[in-house]
């Protein structure tokens, strides 16, 4: 198995894929310097910025309920 080279090459291919995934991952993370990169600027208006964001959904009510016990 070790002599024909094919399984070794397959394993190395997998490692290459993992490396590519690791290199791509930081692109999705928060930019350390707070920039947007090439992403479009989609600012909220002054009223949108300050609007109330909280909604008491079923999800939120379930959180409150489970914390009471």
């Amino acid at each position: 198995m070790a002599n024909d080279g094919k399984p070794v090459a397959a394993r190395r291919g997998m490692l290459g894929l993992l490396g590519a995934a690791a290199a791509a991952a930081p692109a999705a993370a928060i930019d350390p310097n707070g920039n947007r990169g090439d992403l479009p600027n989609r600012p909220e208006s002054e009223a949108e910025k300050r609007r109330p964001r909280y909604r008491e959904t079923d999800h939120v009510r379930a959180f409150y309920r489970t914390n009471r016990s």
Partner: peptide, 14 residues
Amino acid sequence: PQQDNTPSEYVQYG
């Protein structure tokens, strides 16, 4: 202060 759940908001604020 970016539109909700846009890529721009995520990359700056999470």
